[in-house]
């Protein structure tokens, strides 16, 4: 059995206390617009969220960070942190990510001894970097010797499993529907991971206009369960 398995399960548990339950990343806007109303429409949203947001931002950032860790190119990681943060036009999504990033770095520091993560935390404290969960995840995964492809795929899964739980609460849906969605999305996550393996820095940050617009419009919603 791989020695990293249990650490990996711990890392992508949606109960990881980094605050993911507070962020819908625009899903709530679709719920209030009555475009995401049931399992079927939520499944369509999840698919486009994977392809239109996760692949070219969080997923690709995870891969590029992992590669930079292998080559000890730390400047690349700090650049990525800047890119992935300013890449979002939506203030709440940016804030959500750097708040989650900061908490994940802190948690990583409590659990492991990773020099790069300590540097990352110093940079965040000195306001030289923002902190981002995808980058933090890759740094920890590299430290745990989780293979790159597994790291990318499991990070995609952890993003989606949090969102499915938030959707179950927000739409609302039954817990069983939530589990079915998590099962059905697996194929799309595998496809996304394969796609990410073939991407380079030039492809970074491509965003789906509607997804991003929903994240920008979330600021204007009157009643909100989520912070983004």
């Amino acid at each position: 059995m791989d020695s990293y398995l249990l650490s990996l399960l711990q890392l992508c548990d949606s109960n990881l206390p980094i605050g993911a339950f507070s962020h819908s990343f625009g899903l709530e806007t679709y719920i209030q617009d009555e475009k995401v109303v049931n399992k079927q429409t939520f499944a369509a949203w999840l698919k486009i969220y994977v392809r239109g947001q996760l692949v070219h931002s969080d997923g690709l950032a995870c891969k590029l960070t992992y590669e930079a860790m292998v080559r000890c190119e730390l400047d690349k990681i700090w650049n990525l942190d800047q890119m992935i943060t300013v890449q979002s036009f939506a203030r709440e999504t940016r804030e959500g990510n750097y708040r989650m990033g900061e908490r994940m770095i802190q948690l990583g520091m409590e659990l492991y001894d990773i020099p790069t993560l300590a540097l990352y935390q110093d940079r965040v404290k000195a306001k030289q970097s923002y902190g981002h969960p995808a980058i933090t995840y890759a740094i920890i995964a590299h430290h745990l010797q989780i293979p790159q492809s597994t790291a990318i795929l499991s990070h995609l899964y952890s993003c989606i499993s949090s969102l499915v739980q938030n959707g179950v609460r927000g739409i609302p849906l039954g817990q069983t529907d939530g589990q079915r969605l998590l099962q059905e999305i697996q194929y799309h996550l595998l496809e996304a991971q394969r796609l990410i393996e073939g991407l380079s820095e030039d492809d970074f940050g491509i965003v789906s206009p509607g997804i991003e617009l929903s994240q920008m419009r979330h600021e204007q919603l009157h009643f909100r369960l989520f912070m983004s």
């Binding site: 475009k35 239109g52 800047q82 940050g205 491509i206 965003v207 206009p209 509607g210 617009l213």
Partner: peptide, 30 residues
């Protein structure tokens, strides 16, 4: 010298249904 905006759009109508959810949401102009 500090990156403050990074905006990257890629529209490929053959791959993605442009009118669909998350893309242009039924609109035509962006």
């Amino acid at each position: 010298e500090q990156l403050v905006v990074f905006d990257h759009l890629q529209l490929r109508p053959a791959n993605d249904p442009m009118a669909g959810i998350g893309l242009l949401e039924g609109y035509t102009h962006l």
